[in-house]
């Protein structure tokens, strides 16, 4: 137990160190995390880390937090998972709180108001850019193209909750693949990686 407690501290510190070093979304943390837990600390072997990232991506939540939880669990069970999760969350949590306080102070300043008018236009571009990046791997046949367009149109013109749309997506994927199977078509389930 004594050894275990020391281990928990190490797990917590390892993920605490990774978190604040990366800007621009959770994906930016992945190469850093790999370096820390595979190369430096040799906690996880190179084959296993790929598998962990793949699972982290197919579970709801941010990939960086999910990976940290998974690695923490592999190292020291449920307590390890919690130590890793708090480690990866804490720095960004504090930074966001600090920025929120700062934002509340400056937002009524006329210069900041003007700046944020411009920034809001950039945020729209950031969101569209995210759609473009996901679209590159998500949309590769007629079915996926139609699903994407219909989804955007339905959300724009009908009062449908986004959560309902996400749940429908899960059901739709399973049903379409089954139906195509009945009619003798095979569905390519992922885009070819020819990079």
């Amino acid at each position: 137990m004594g050894r275990n407690r020391k281990y928990l501290g190490q797990i917590f510190l390892a993920f605490l160190k990774i978190a604040p070093a990366t800007f621009g979304g959770g994906y930016a943390m992945i190469p850093l995390m790999e370096k820390e837990v595979v190369e430096k600390r040799k906690w996880i072997n190179p084959q296993e880390i790929g598998e962990i990232f793949a699972i982290a991506q197919s579970v709801p939540g941010a990939i960086a937090i999910n990976s940290a939880i998974f690695i923490g669990y592999r190292l020291a069970g449920v307590l390890g998972a919690i130590a890793a999760m708090i480690g990866i969350l804490l720095p960004t949590f504090l930074i966001v709180i600090a920025l929120s306080i700062l934002f509340i102070f400056v937002k009524d300043n006329p210069y900041m108001e003007a700046a944020f008018t411009g920034i809001r236009a950039a945020v729209v571009a950031m969101i569209l850019f995210a759609a473009y990046k996901i679209g590159l791997t998500a949309v590769y046949d007629k079915t996926t193209l139609v699903i994407m367009i219909v989804t955007a149109v339905i959300l724009l013109f009908l009062q449908v909750h986004p959560v309902a749309v996400i749940l429908a997506g899960i059901a739709l994927g399973i049903v379409i693949v089954k139906v195509k199977e009945w009619f003798g078509y095979a569905t390519q389930l992922e885009k070819d990686e020819d990079k």
Partner: peptide
């Protein structure tokens, strides 16, 4: 397979 294009549509 169904979720990915829906997510794309959602972000658009």
């Amino acid at each position: 397979y169904g979720l990915r294009p829906i997510i794309t549509g959602l972000i658009i």
